[in-house]
Structures are given as C-alpha cells and as structure tokens.
Nucleic acid binder design. Structure first.
Lengths: 155, 155
DNA sequence: CTTGAATAGTTCGGAATCCGAAGTATATCA
DNA sequence: TGATATACTTCGGATTCCGAACTATTCAAG
C-alpha cells in the first residue's frame, strides 16, 4: 500500500512531491515534538530554538514568519516559566530584547539536540542526504526571509 | 541582516538547518495558500490535493497524518460545497469512499497547478534543485508513511 | 521645540483547527 | 451466536493564531 502511494506520487510534478514531503515532515515533527517536553508548547519550543542570541520581538516575529501579537503571548508564557527575560533595548526604548535565562539556555540545548534526533528518525536520511537536504533547506529559508513577509514588515 | 541570520544558521547542525527550512517553507506555503482560493480552507485544499483518486477516509487520515474525526469535518464541508461525494465502499459497508465531483476535480487541478507555482516562488530553487529536493522529499515522505503513525492505525 | 507620522510591542475578542472519548454500524472470528 | 475489532461520526474542549484598537517611543519636518 505504501508502495502504491509512492508510485502515484511519483507521477506528480516535482513541486507537488516536494510540498507533500514538506507537509509530511512538518506534521510528523510537530507530532514528535508533542512527545518530549511536557511543560512547553510547540510555539514555545520554536521560539526557544530561534533564540540563539538575544533578539528583539519584531525580529523574532519576522524570523518566525508570524505577527507580533503572537510573539507577545509566547514570550509571556516563557517569561512566566522562567526561560527568558525581557530587557529594554538600549538603542530603542520602545523595543524589548528577549534574553534566555540559564534555564532557558539549558532547555534550548536540550531541544536543539533532541530536534536533531527527531529529524534524523523522521526523515530516515543518511548523513550525506541530510547534508544535501540541509543545503537546499537553507537556501529556501534564505529566499523566504528575503522575499518573505508580504505586506510591510519587510523593513 | 539576512546575511547575519544565514551565517548563524550555518553554524547549526544540518538537521536543525533542515528543520528550520522545512518550517519556514511550511509557514510560507500556508500563508500563500490563504491568498488564492477564497471559499476553501487550508485543510480542504490539502484534502483535495490528496484525492487524486477515490479514497477511504481512514486511508486519507493516515495519508494526512491525522485522525479520522478531523477527516470527517473536512469531508463534510467539501461535500456540502459540492466538491466531493461519499460513496459506500462495496468491499466494506462500514467504509466510505470520498469521490471528487467534476467541480472537485476541476478545483483540484487548479490547486495542484497553483501550489506548484507557489512552491517555485517561495523556494526560489531552479529546476535542477527542485528535482533534487523533490527526490529527498519523496524519500522522507515514504519513510514517514512507513514508520509513521505511532500507535495503532499503522495497519 | 513642537507637531504629526511611523514604529515596537500589548491587549483583547473571535475564528479556525484539531484531538480524544463516547457512540453507531458493520465485519470478523471463535 | 456472541465477542471483539474496525470505520466513521458526534461532540466538547483546548490550543493556536490573527487582526484591530491601543500605549509608548522615535523620527522627520517645519
């Protein structure tokens, strides 16, 4: 049965095959995420992973392809749980920098490591294929962030 | 600034780079989907695209990595809007086959074509890279569908 | 310096989505 | 014949997410 699906898929355009793979991987990864860290929601995990260094909330919103109001809610939750703090940006008192606490940095390390394993298991790719996929994925992401956000916000 | 992001990303593991690319692409595609077809929700689009031929709802659920109750709601909406009909599976009277109407098939063709263009624009990949990405994506999807659904349902 | 417009983030209300548990009908097996 | 498993549905609730209106600050023009 899986073979049937695969064969039918092979008749579709490369773009659609790519999309279906992306959707399957996204859904699978989201499902896997739900199984590891009890007290963090998915968005909270995503935000932690993105916070490799202090970032302004607007930058983070652009980075996560979402709107500021969504960032606020997630940052509130992470701050309340002690994973990060808000610090005023010295360059612009309207803006806040989100800075990981020690607890936050530790959680982020765990997440990055675990997420890597999840990807490995979910994708089933070997190291060479993973590297190849990563190269293309990086290129895609660069393109999206560059051309990305449709109205305004582009800065 | 985009360059900074890209450079930091390059220091991450290939797996995380791959994940971030997948997430960015998924979010971007979802956003793009919202701009094309006014009277179809995202899930309805996904389901139409999957219905390249009549399928049982359970098969469709596995195919979309979700649970049957979610399929019911989406199928209800598509049926009410005249895109598909439910037909009893002659082999098993408990099961329903979802069959596209002419309107549904037409909508599906439009969607598949448009989605291809969306992928092309969002990813920014050329034909060769797209083919390469599609090959890996197909492999990933096969792996997920094979090992995929965690408890039961695996059949 | 003052005023007006733009920007950073917040609040709030509502829409959409999706899952899990319980229920109905049918199939399968002992 | 009866017990168990399967296919789908219904329903209730939790989560997520966006857009509009709002506050505080910055920036530009005069």
């Amino acid at each position: 049965m899986t073979k049937d699906i695969s064969e039918r898929l092979a008749r579709l355009t490369p773009e659609i095959q790519a999309m279906m793979g992306v959707y399957a991987l996204y859904w699978k990864l989201e499902e896997s995420f739900g199984c590891i860290d009890t007290d963090l929601s998915h968005q909270e995990c995503h935000m932690l992973i993105k916070l490799d260094q202090p970032k302004r909330m607007g930058v983070l919103a652009a980075d996560m392809l979402t709107v500021p109001s969504t960032i606020t809610a997630t940052a509130d939750a992470l701050e309340a749980a002690g994973y990060l703090t808000r610090q005023q940006d010295p360059d612009d008192r309207r803006a806040w920098l989100l800075v990981l606490t020690d607890k936050g940095a530790e959680a982020r390390n765990m997440l990055v490591t675990t997420a890597g394993e999840l990807f490995h298991r979910a994708s089933g790719l070997d190291d060479e294929e993973t590297a190849q996929f990563a190269r293309l994925a990086r290129k895609i992401r660069d393109n999206i962030l560059k051309t990305g956000i449709p109205e305004g916000l582009t800065k």
